[in-house]
Design a protein around this nucleic acid. Structure first.
Lengths: 339, 339
DNA sequence: CTGTTAGCGCCTTCAC
DNA sequence: GTGAAGGCGCTAACAG
């Protein structure tokens, strides 16, 4: 009905009290007489009053908003994490601002202004990078947490999985199926996930007494296309791999596509293992064997830790690893005498 | 270096001017002497000052933030639209707040508080629903725009595609390939896209003189699983379809999976057509023929219209349809003497 | 060109 | 239990 938004003053006038009482009725109901509180609530109702969030934030020096920087909004891997983050944020009275960076550090840096200008109270980093130009980390860093891709910075809390152990688990599954020529399709070269997962791969080989052939370390960038290229690189090899362990599912999907295109059977001729268990992993032909991360839980935990940090100033030196699960589907063979 | 965030006053003091001059130097540089401006800028630099966004918003009554309500953050269909939205938002000096609703009207309603409390200046609706309980639309609606899924409300601008024409195009492609028993796998029953695409399907059949068999109208809900179920429903039919036209790609993927599981060849035995052209459509076996929407452009246009509306109060009665493209891949056969 | 001043809407001491 | 008043940080008149 009202054409302009009602302010606290409108409510006060209508209820016949002062604005202080209105504010109290809302935030400290116990300090207000039952009768006046009722009047205030009625006035609020009939004016359709909603407190101006900007005025509140200015006064309270807190926006109850969290910014999460996600490197690629189109990557379904992040969806469940975002759901987890949002669920607890909302439950604890915070809003979630999702900032897409398209993997561009420059864009990530622009989001810092959200913090500096006080638009958000904290930061969730999914990008594996600090959103500051190298070497210019602020003296008193704002509340933030690194998720999935660990950022190595003292005092910065982290929630994710043990990538090395998980990759080792995956590789061991391939070894148990009889494979000895196992290619590793890597992610972007400097990416920490790439390194950790490769370490796990190497550890599994070492434990099985299989020498690591550097020629089987294939470059990739987490994209489907790079998986296609990795599979295509079999061409030049005199002793091609009988299995591919890919650092993520997208690349595994690319590998399967290219293998199939070449008339190779998966898993009979070549086995393929992914990582992450994104939604479409179960839709490939054959469906993809992969490692599942508890993404929602990771998101929930991360937000809880961050909000604790914001609200209570908890010492943030936390590093929590959540358990993974090997999801065996059709793209890796049964334990057999492969080759 | 500074432990507390610098305010405009700190800058003023350091530069030896008044706070008004600092503000002017920032927003109306022309109205400030070159020399003083330099001093101010230097002071800003050495204090590390960033204007408090809350104070600005309170004063300016604008946050330069747009909220977009997306029904499912995990649906890659929305990713490109979000990219388009964000690109022009950022370019025009606005921030984008992404609100995931998990297709839950109740959650969508919670986002309205962002508007009412002044946290955002406008709203992009990707959900096909107004975020208000039925019948309680506010008297003076806030700036908003409906995208892709048209919301039928007078004066509410819309950007999307001509779903009926696009569905007709898709169906005609199937007809041209010789199909006459074409199933339509629908989305959620009350969804407008479902209806529009079904209308296009029906129109194509009618134009070709093919009677519409209601038994070929299969229920679905846009999920992969519902596609699987639709394909499985061939069981009960004495005259099963030779082609499936699915209201979206996810369902088409499900159909292909189930068809393949049953030993049916796509497209030799049964053809499958999708809608949307999501990323994984080109990764199925065989790759999916589908209809591509210009998603990024839709997002860009939508944001431009919304911001025009916000900034200039442009009469918002706009209804723009962007062109689609039939993407022919392997899941539909060549024009043949199919049955 | 520059400084002074009046709020934006709200929360919270501090008196009563 | 309630009201008056100050101030969060900033911008835009309005004077000079």
């Amino acid at each position: 009905m009202q054409s302009k938004t009602a302010t606290i003053e409108d409510v006060a006038r209508l209820a016949g009290v002062s604005i202080a009482t209105v504010s109290r009725a809302l935030h400290h109901p116990a300090k207000v007489a039952e009768a006046t509180r009722k009047k205030v609530l009625a006035a609020i109702d009939s004016t359709g009053f909603t407190a101006n969030a900007m005025a509140q934030s200015l006064r309270l020096k807190s926006t109850r908003m969290i910014l999460v920087i996600v490197p690629d909004i189109g990557n379904t891997f992040f969806a469940s994490i975002l759901r987890g983050l949002e669920a607890v944020a909302q439950q604890r009275g915070y809003g979630l601002l999702i900032g897409n960076s398209e993997n561009d550090p420059a864009i990530e840096e622009t989001y810092v202004s959200y913090l500096r200008s006080g638009k958000v109270d904290g930061l969730v980093l999914l990008s594996g990078r600090l959103p500051w130009p190298a070497g210019s980390i602020p003296a008193n860093p704002p509340p933030m947490i690194s998720v999935c891709e660990e950022i190595e910075m003292p005092g910065l809390p982290f929630i994710g999985i043990d990538n090395q152990a998980a990759a080792r688990l995956a590789t061991e599954h391939l070894i148990a199926a009889g494979h000895r020529r196992i290619a590793y399709v890597a992610g972007p070269a400097r990416n920490i996930l790439t390194r950790q997962r490769q370490d796990g791969y190497a550890a599994a080989l070492a434990a099985a007494g299989i020498p690591l052939d550097p020629g089987l370390l294939l470059p990739g960038d987490f994209s489907i296309e790079s998986g296609v290229r990795a599979a295509a690189s079999m061409d030049g090899m005199e002793e091609p791999p009988t299995a591919f362990f890919c650092a993520n599912d997208e690349m595994a999907i690319g590998v399967i596509m290219e293998l199939t295109r070449r008339g190779l059977k998966v898993p009979e001729d070549v086995a393929v293992m992914g990582f992450d268990d994104i939604q479409f992993s179960s839709c490939t032909t054959p469906p993809l064997t992969t490692v599942r991360q508890p993404r929602r839980e990771i998101g929930e935990e991360a937000m809880d830790v961050l909000l604790d940090l914001i609200e209570t100033g908890t010492p943030p030196s936390l590093h929590r690893l959540l358990p993974v699960e090997l999801v065996v589907r059709g793209s890796t063979g049964m334990p057999a005498s492969a080759r």
